[in-house]
Amino acid sequence: MTGAAPPAGVGPVLEVDGLRKYFVSPRRLLGPQAGVVHAVDGVSFTIEARETLGLVGESGCGKSTVGRTVLRLLKPTDGTIRLLGDDITRLESRALRPYRRRMQIIFQDPYSSLDPRMTAGDIAGELLGVHGVSSRAERHERVAELFSRVGLRRDQIGNYPHEFSGGQRQRLGIARALSLQPSLIVCDEPVSALDVSIQAQVINLLMDLQAEYGLSYLFIAHDLAVVEHISHRVAVMYLGRIVEFADKRELFANPLHPYTESLLDAVPVPDPRRVRRRRIVRGDVPSPIDRPSGCHFHTRCPYAVERCRHEDPALREVAPGHRVACHLR
């Protein structure tokens, strides 16, 4: 592939500031009252060229919503999103189009995210057609290049998704995402559905592609070991907010937020000799409609003190590049 364009500019590829995304939840029969789902509630971060930012947290804490809002697949409630320096927060369809080319997404489920009636070649080349970037012949050549780059055979171009294994379908999704030479790819649980041995193949591929094309990733996953492996920096989310943010070495070696600490402690380590020292959080994540007062984590936090019940801790920088939202740190 030629002309793989790491962004020309100097600044970050993505700058997100004070991002909010609320959903109005309809009144459910037996559930809580109608209310506002605070899916993303004031999230700020940047991603540099060639950088992977990992986003972790329990189910429902807002990771996918961040990814989808950043890509403008969802309309932000508040905040700003800058892609390659340009504010894209309120751009509408036509004005947004050139930016759409610069950012792509890879989904968790390679089974349901690909159209079963299209051939693999059409899937990989569809965006090239949509954006009218090449003639039919050029497109074919480009698809063939993409296939070999992601480790698919050229003779598979005419096959349908069901003829591929899970790992191959994920490679196909990656080929499609790469086709327009984006600057940023949101990877939403890209390896969660894959077998262990295939996971390693896809992770290695994503890392190789980043090195080769200077890609930036927003990498969403619930597997902390995978995030640790692939990320440069990591943000931990709880109930719509970032509660800790640091360089990955710093975060994994020296977690400061009690939530990060308990997440890390809960990860089973593939070493039977390891003595477990668990500070497991009790219970489930509270509803994002009716969040606990003060620090949202106080209902599950082993260190909570009276102050935590009514005072919301701000995200503060406690060491260079290490931010944490907790009264005690």
Binding site: V196, S197, Q199, A200, Q201, I203, N204, M207, L224, A225, V226, E228, H229, K248, R249, F252, A253, L264, V267, V269, P270, D271, R274
Partner: peptide, 21 residues
């Protein structure tokens, strides 16, 4: 082929390429 948290916690290389099958 599995990445482990220990690699970093124990100060070992975290950048190693995962072994593929």
């Amino acid at each position: 082929s599995v990445p482990t948290l220990d690699a970093l916690r124990d100060g070992a290389a975290g950048e190693r390429r995962l072994a593929e099958i």
